[in-house]
């Protein structure tokens, strides 16, 4: 559930770091999904151990975090910000110069799309295209599991449904009330190897855990996709979802205050594949997201050592070995 928990400040396990003159208190968001916990844990570790910052983790969610930044200038760092979900509000903040995007935290970015389980795709290869699905609605249980209302993806999906005239093919559109029920419906179908067809996004635990195959909607057309982002647009079109930009964003204030850290954060980028692998590892090893972060830090030091400056590299030498 995407709860409004932004106000609750939780001081996570604070390790008295090496007091360092050039880095003071830093606050960073932790969204309530697994990949973000990984990102935040990695960032926190590097900032504390490498740069001597005093890091406060703020459990939050996309919209509350953006709102909080707009109103209070806090927290300093919003990471794994899905631009699609943050929407207009965030872009306005950038225009006002309150925040600055440092870079993509996921490369090439998040994947969004309409999916079916791979076992279904193997059994019925024709279902890997939307035309195939619409020609055989009974193979997907005549149901499309739509995005929860109020989510950014919902508008696009709704417009796609209209553009495709999905319901005319005999497929019922079921609007989920929350991400939890969407995920549970997918999980429960996959557990039983039953048909499932619906929207999902990644990298997430469910997409890492379950082997899903994308249903091709056609080519990506930036114009059509932009048009589809307006609710009830007059002439919706069909376009594949592009890779979703997932950013790390900091307040301009923070960037001026801690240029070194900001420099590091701008380089802090996970390959989408690496992240997916991490999430899959997490599920396989029955590990927590924090342990996934540790796993990444221990095993991918060559990747993250390029993010940090020399003094941090020196401090973290024991881990980097």
């Amino acid at each position: 559930m995407r709860k409004l928990t932004s106000i609750a400040m939780l001081c996570a396990l604070s390790v008295p770091g090496f007091a360092q003159a050039d880095c003071g208190e830093v606050s960073i968001t932790e969204m309530n999904w697994a990949s973000n916990t990984v990102v935040t844990s990695v960032a926190k570790f590097i900032m504390e151990q490498g740069y001597g910052c005093d890091v406060t983790v703020v459990p939050s969610d996309t919209i509350p975090a953006v709102t909080s930044v707009a109103e209070n200038g806090e927290p300093d760092i919003v990471t794994e910000l899905w631009l699609n979900s943050a929407g207009e509000a965030y872009l306005k903040l950038e225009e006002q110069g309150k925040v600055e995007r440092l870079g993509k935290v996921l490369d090439p970015g998040g994947v969004e799309g309409w999916w079916i389980p791979t076992y279904l795709a193997e059994e019925h290869p024709e279902l890997t295209t939307i035309e195939g699905v619409m020609a055989n609605p009974e193979l997907v249980d005549k149901r499309f599991n739509n995005c929860p209302s109020g989510w950014g993806c919902r508008v696009v999906s709704d417009n796609l449904v209209r553009a495709l005239d999905l319901e005319a093919s005999g497929i019922e559109v079921f609007n989920h009330g929350s991400g939890e029920t969407l995920a549970s419906s997918m999980a429960s179908a996959v557990q039983d190897e039953e048909p499932w067809f619906g929207y999902y996004w990644g990298p997430t635990v469910p997409l890492g855990k379950f082997d899903m195959t994308r249903v091709e909607l056609g080519d990506y057309d930036p114009d059509v996709h932009t048009r589809n982002q307006t609710p009830d647009v007059e002439n919706p079109g069909v376009s594949e979802f592009p890779a979703a930009p997932v950013l790390t964003s900091v307040t301009t204030d923070f960037k001026e205050r801690e240029p070194e850290v900001a420099e590091m954060l701008s380089k802090l980028t996970f390959k989408t594949d690496t992240m997916s692998a991490l999430l899959a590892w997490m599920d396989k090893s029955n590990a927590s997201a924090e342990e996934a972060a540790v796993y990444f830090l221990s095993n991918n030091s060559d990747e993250w050592s390029s993010w940090i400056n020399d003094s941090a590299r020196q401090r973290l030498s024991s881990v980097l070995e």
Binding site: L13, V15, S41, F45, Q49, S285, A287, S288, E290, E291, A292, A293, V294, Y295, L297, S298, V319
Partner: peptide, 8 residues
């Protein structure tokens, strides 16, 4: 899995 405490 190595925990954060171990890593620290």
């Amino acid at each position: 899995p190595l925990s954060m405490v171990d890593l620290l």
